[in-house]
Design a protein around this nucleic acid. Structure first.
Lengths: 142, 142
DNA sequence: TTTTAAAGTTAGTCAAGGCTAAATTGATTT
DNA sequence: AAATCAATTTAGCCTTGACTAACTTTAAAA
């Protein structure tokens, strides 16, 4: 009768939740590099004050986060100067931008109101696997 | 010419991110009440050790979280005894269970592999608005 | 009934991601 | 050149959610 199964598979959720916690840890990083990329495109540079305004947090919080991003190799910055994406940050930003767009377009394509889609996409994008993303893509172009 | 607009609307994301942070703060609570409900249904009671195993965290972490849930009125517990949902916890658990099922069914219905759907649903469910959830529902039953 | 194993608790640590208040720097005006 | 103002940084605090290690309680076995 095959191997002893690992109990009821429905009970083996630990891995799912571990991956969920990982996704969590990446969310802020992804939102920041995406936003920094947007700012550079739209305004020519990314300043702390603009990030703080767009995320709705204080300048001190932005400062903390930028330090972490710098430590992790996603951005470079010099005191009192604007923030730049590294190669690594650029790559992640592009990936996030594309993914966001796909999720947003998909939601709109199935009939979700654009404003709601914009909000939901912001939360959903960090939790969509590559596979699901491809299903979304197919659905849009059909 | 109408009111002075609040700059470019695309730049006014602060509210989106504030709501996102709120959703974040609710995620663990939702996962726990949902899991506690499942355990009570499946095994007759919810013990710390089972929660720890299913979430893949230590008993100490479960203990912390249960204290918080108790403080917030979602569960009751007595030392060395099993955990119970309050009315409030029960209500939230049901809402989460239903929502999870809709997201899961929707993903499967558009062609996502059930295992992937199970994983993605766990992350997505916390970020789906009521409106999008209703769109998902309609999509399933058609 | 005593021992032992499993379950639960407590204490202490850490990182992330928020905050406020105060200090500093850079840029603009006078 | 000095004063001022906006932007940035620093310091210190908080909660959440994770951990380990050590301890206590409960339940089961001997």
């Amino acid at each position: 009768m095959g191997d002893k199964p690992t109990l009821n598979p429905r009970h083996n959720k630990a891995e799912v939740f571990a991956r969920l916690r990982d996704a969590h840890a990446r969310e802020v990083t992804e939102d920041y590099v995406e936003m920094i990329g947007d700012l550079i495109n739209e305004e020519g540079e990314a300043r702390s004050v603009a990030l703080a305004e767009r995320f709705g947090v204080t300048a001190a919080t932005v400062n903390n986060t930028i330090k972490r991003l710098e430590r992790d190799g996603f951005v470079t910055s010099r005191p009192y100067r604007s923030i730049f994406l590294t190669e690594k940050g650029e790559t992640l930003a592009k990936k996030c931008r594309d993914r966001h767009q796909i999720v947003y377009n998909f939601l709109v394509s199935i009939g979700v109101d654009p404003d709601t889609a914009e909000f939901d996409a912001e939360g959903i994008e960090h939790h969509v696997s590559e596979e699901t993303l491809r299903v979304f893509e197919s659905a849009i172009s059909s």
